[in-house]
Design a protein around this nucleic acid. Sequence first.
DNA 1: CTATTTGTAGCTAATACAGTTACAAACACT
DNA 2: AGTGTTTGTAACTGTATTAGCTACAAATAG
Lengths: 143, 143
Amino acid sequence: MAANSQFSMAVHVLSMLARSKDENLKSDYLAGSVNTNAVVVRRLLGLLGHAKLVVSQTGANGGTRLARCPNEIDLWEIYQAVNCGEVFALHAKAPNQDCPVGKNIEAVLCCLQKDIDKGIQEKLSKYTLQSVFEMVAQGAAVA
Amino acid sequence: MAANSQFSMAVHVLSMLARSKDENLKSDYLAGSVNTNAVVVRRLLGLLGHAKLVVSQTGANGGTRLARCPNEIDLWEIYQAVNCGEVFALHAKAPNQDCPVGKNIEAVLCCLQKDIDKGIQEKLSKYTLQSVFEMVAQGAAVA
DNA sequence: CTATTTGTAGCTAATACAGTTACAAACACT
DNA sequence: AGTGTTTGTAACTGTATTAGCTACAAATAG
């Protein structure tokens, strides 16, 4: 249970919100679709709210809805909102600075991280939440 | 200590091997540069050996050397050799199959995973071990 | 005022990785 | 043959991260 499935859950939850546009959905209801606990969903919605992707209301008749139209939200924004780490981690402990390789490898790896991130951005920014939701809806029609 | 730094360590170790081409380097020596334990290095070298990137010899005067020239090894091969997981994980538990979104979201996410992987491949296959080692060596010359 | 809902703190369990010790197997050298 | 070196690997520990859960204060509608 250690792999990060927050992006998957985020896309799932946001697809639900896109389907029920301008309607407040409750964390309990969303948790039922994701098949998890309502608190886990609320924690995720906290991140998404912080990124200005959703708006939540407390109290009776409260819940969460999209802050923008689904075609104005791309997956790169979602990825950034929930993703805390890089694709690969740098050395846990700094390498031996007395070794010519150890001294410079981290800077090179850091550049690589940024280049990979840019690659992911290029891929993900091509998808809007709208397009993803349509793929999901289409699958539902077929199956 | 839970983030995966195996790719970083692999690039580091392979750069060391590229620097001492056709010479057997010992896990203990490599561990000294990476600043970790020799067994950790040997475990990594096991993966790299399985991927036919390095060749190891047991016994006295044993050690590990590159199986190919540094300009015939690209970073995508290294990434594949050590990377066990995807950039993001799918749902830990399967979503609610009675929900139209839950029923189809996993297939869509799976396609996304593959697309991202392709993006990473495009980026990483542009770098050879040779080019990375040259960047490291250049940094050493400057600093 | 009451019922509902979010936000969040605090805990437990599962998982993954790094680090370590220990030792068998392979090998070179004499 | 015998000795010393090195890899390969199993087994264990410590630590970090995530998911899942309970509990409760704060906010809100009616």
